[in-house]
């Protein structure tokens, strides 16, 4: 006997994401999903963002890694609530994991939760976590050709941060070409050139983020 099913395989994750979205909306909290390859500077960007915004935005961080608590300890050292999710080999976070992490945060005290997704340019692009914004961080050391190789993650990002611009003199990175490729895939994306090491460009990025979450001024 044949049974017609016609069900999206990611439907269950999408339902959990919708539940996260509804929960956060009821507490007026914005969820930001930060994605990047390993070593692009996700944790440094988060720490720089916290420094810029903490006086006016209540922030918590959900850290996703295969293993270890290195990142969440670094965030907690800044006196910011941090939840560590260890995926134990899993290559991305899913909406159910975020739902569980949200149970451990005081949503009333928060305006924004930043998720540091597992370092990976493939899988995180496919899994909605219930976020309001998806941010992709690339770094100039990765080369300007990444949009050719990982187009999907560039398509789904609301903003793309180009980190480590202090290293541009030492890298064969064509900024104009990179911008052209990103905007070709995603004409609506906002691009920000930053250097966490030299604390450059973070003000423009955090102003965009604060306005995206409705916390300007």
């Amino acid at each position: 006997m044949r049974i017609e099913v016609r069900q999206n395989i990611l439907a269950r994750n999408d339902e959990a994401a919708a539940a996260n979205r509804a929960l956060l909306a009821s507490h007026d909290v914005t969820l930001v999903n930060l994605m990047a390859a390993p070593g692009a500077g996700k944790t440094s960007v988060i720490m720089g963002t916290i420094e810029e915004l903490r006086s006016r935005v209540g922030i918590a961080v959900i850290e996703g890694d295969i293993a270890s608590e290195v990142d969440s300890l670094a965030i907690e050292a800044m006196d910011i609530p941090a939840i560590q999710i260890n995926t134990g080999g899993g290559c991305h976070l899913n909406a159910g994991m975020i739902g569980t992490a949200l149970e451990h945060l005081d949503l009333e005290a928060l305006d924004m939760i930043i998720i540091e997704n597992v370092g990976n340019l493939v899988c995180p692009a496919e899994f909605d976590l219930g976020e309001e914004s998806r941010i992709l961080i690339t770094s100039v050391t990765e080369g300007h050709d990444k949009p050719y190789k990982y187009p999907q993650i560039f398509r789904v990002a609301d903003a793309v941060l180009i980190n480590k611009v202090d290293l541009l003199p030492y890298c064969d990175f064509d900024m104009a070409r990179f911008r052209e490729l990103v905007l070709g895939l995603n004409p609506g994306a906002s691009l920000f050139e930053v250097s966490c090491t030299e604390e450059r460009g973070l003000a423009a990025w955090t102003a965009w983020l604060a306005s995206a979450v409705g916390r300007v001024g």
Binding site: M1, R2, I3, E4, V5, R6, Q7, N8, I9, L10, R155, L181, G184, L185, N186, P187
Partner: peptide
């Protein structure tokens, strides 16, 4: 010129099962 949106080709669903 690059084309940002695919009109088809990114599907993933269970169509039917035979039991």
């Amino acid at each position: 010129s690059p084309v940002p949106v695919l009109s088809r080709g990114q599907e993933l669903y269970v169509d039917s099962i035979e039991v």
